[in-house]
Design a protein around this nucleic acid. Structure first.
Length: 539
RNA sequence: GGCCCCUUCGUCUAAGGGUUAGGACGCGGCCCUUUCACGGCUGAAAUACGGGUUCGAAGCCCGUAGGGGUCACCA
């Protein structure tokens, strides 16, 4: 026996085949019925559903690429939906950046907030009424209930449970409320959330394309909040409702969702809907094998663009994680990724996002796919254009006596990291002590990350606040930034330079400086950020 | 910690019970070359561990270890 690849007849149901152990077990559970890939009554529809709460992440692009390839290969369609139900963190800037980044990579979608479509709106914040309606149906059918517990009570409860070494779960207090009590509380205007009910016993079987059957005890599943007290749904409700309403047939998402799959399946069951085929994809990892994070790696797609990578190299690189290459050339095209796509070829272990192969690929694209004129054109698109050069002209014009001075003064605008920067150089002539210098970079970094709009005012405010928090003169601190950002002790106006360089390159240069000085531990970051908060509340 | 997932060179990966465990990046060496790249050749480098099953195990089963994910009115 052993692991077997499906014979041709099985190929149609390929995602039902267990990849590891008992490989031919079929999904026969009532709640998850297989859909045929060739079922013309239900064309393949996949989706990418980013949350606009930060920079466009390479992990998003990787998941998007998989959904795109799968849909394209089978003549289906990819949808883009914006999951912006977190009012506090979602921003239009982030949404725009994510759309731009995916377009830059050459991925496109048949329906989405920018192109519309028959199942819109495609922004969850604009679908409130739909969720309310569905949530009310769940309550009416006895599958969900209002919960009036306060956040304080809940966190205290969790603390107690953890202290008693019990799994932290909602204890069901509000489950026993009578209708009279509920209307009383509503009348008083006590805020509430809506939670889903979970069966008291039994197990949930999740059929995962790559892993086969995964079992969860309902007893260990929490009574998830479906509707927040602000009236907006949580991910779980919105996601299930939208996937159904938008006709999504295959959900391919990150592995971090496996443990909430039982809740989602339960919701499909409560609504009486057929769930999509679920595929959980391995995560992209930092070098230390933890989930890829911007603390440890550049994760923004915009960073890779600014650093001068070609979009086709980036797509190719991401494609390496989903294509079994055998002995073929690893340089490939998006079309080939689509043609060769087979979800079963995705290996289950998470992949370390090590960009050295991206560098190699990018070099090959530059020397093999374009002549000198074509290359020059790409360089123009990247930086040698008026939009990028104008601010540089503005900064340099009055500082040089002849145009040939330009090279030395502006080289840093055409670099990624400052190569050759040393610890000695970074410390030369800096009046701050080493600790203060590390604090300065760290605090600037965390404030830069939090900046909604990247502009000179924000940069200015950040550096001033940093100096204030460390109780050092701005002038003394500036030198440390000149060295980290430009590699030189002086040059064009710093704030303008930082603004022009952009958030991603700044992050990389400050990270570089911190590598030389000794990266801040989590504990240090926390303590230093407290310093900043204190100083801000005083000033 | 509970639950769940995972484990082939440093990294990305190939190998449907039988291969000297293959390729690629990176690293080293040699060649080409005015330099540096490119290119060519070449070297070192892996089946986490322990038990089974089998004529035969990287692969199947069990256990152990390690790593990861998740346990929010974030997604």
């Amino acid at each position: 026996m052993g692991r077997q690849k499906p014979a041709n007849a099985w190929r149609e149901h390929v995602w039902l085949i267990r990849r590891d152990k008992d490989c031919r077990r079929r999904a026969d559970s009532m709640i998850q019925r297989p859909i045929s890939m060739t079922d013309t009554a239900r064309p393949i529809r996949t989706r990418i559903a980013p949350s606009p709460t930060g920079d466009p992440h390479v992990g998003t692009a990787y998941i998007a690429l998989i959904n795109y390839c799968f849909a394209k290969k089978h003549g289906g369609e990819l949808l883009l939906r914006i999951e912006d139900t977190d009012q506090a963190r979602s921003t239009p800037q982030s949404e725009k950046a994510i759309l731009d980044a995916l377009k830059w990579l050459g991925l496109d979608w048949a329906e989405g907030p920018d192109v519309g479509g028959p199942h819109g709106p495609y922004r969850q914040s604009e679908r409130s009424a739909i969720y309310t309606e569905h949530c009310e149906k769940l309550m009416a059918d006895g599958h969900a209930f209002k919960c009036y517990c306060t956040a304080e009570k809940l966190s205290q409860m969790r603390k107690d449970q953890i202290a008693r070494k019990k799994p932290p779960r909602y204890d069901g207090t509000c489950l026993s409320l009578t209708d009279v009590e509920r209307s009383e509380l509503d009348l008083q205007g006590v805020p509430h959330v809506v939670r889903m009910k979970i069966p008291e016993s039994g197990t949930c079987e999740v059929q995962d394309t790559l892993r086969g059957k995964i079992e969860f005890e309902y007893a260990a599943v929490d009574m998830q909040v479906l509707m927040k007290s602000d009236g907006l749904p949580t991910y779980h409700l919105a996601n299930v409702v939208d996937d159904h309403l938008m006709g999504i047939t295959h959900v391919m998402r990150g592995e971090e969702w496996i443990s909430s799959a039982p809740k989602h399946l339960l919701l499909y069951q409560y609504f009486g809907w057929e769930p999509p085929v679920l595929t959980h994809l391995p995560l992209l990892l930092n070098a230390d094998k933890s989930k890829l994070s911007k603390r440890k790696n550049p994760t923004s797609i915009l960073y890779y663009r600014r650093a001068g990578y070609l979009s086709e190299a980036m797509v190719n690189f991401l494609g390496l994680f989903i294509k079994s290459s055998g002995e073929e050339d690893e340089k490939t095209t998006l079309q080939a990724l689509i043609d060769d796509f087979d979800v079963q070829h995705i290996s289950l272990g998470g992949s370390v996002f090590d960009t050295s192969k991206l560098d190699w690929l990018n070099g090959r694209y530059m020397r093999e796919d374009m002549d000198a004129a074509g290359f020059l054109e790409r360089v123009r698109e990247w930086a040698l254009n008026d939009a990028y050069m104008m601010p540089i002209a503005d900064m340099t014009q009055s500082r040089i006596t002849k145009m040939s001075d330009l090279g030395g003064l502006t080289a840093m605008f055409f670099m990624n990291r400052i190569e050759g920067l040393t610890l000695e150089r970074l410390r030369s002539g800096v009046k701050l002590d080493e600790l203060q210098q590390r604090q300065a970079y760290t605090l600037a970094l965390s404030q830069f990350d939090a900046l909604l709009d990247w502009d000179k005012d924000g940069v200015d405010a950040t550096l001033r606040a940093t100096a204030a928090a460390l109780d050092v003169k701005l002038k003394d601190m500036i030198r440390a930034f000149y060295l980290a950002v430009t590699g030189e002790a002086q040059g064009v106006p710093l704030f303008d330079a930082i603004t022009h360089l952009g958030r991603d390159i700044m992050r990389e240069r400050l990270r570089h400086a911190m590598e030389l000085l000794g990266p801040a531990t989590k504990k240090e970051v926390k303590a230093w950020e407290a310093l900043l908060r204190e100083s801000k509340s005083e000033g």
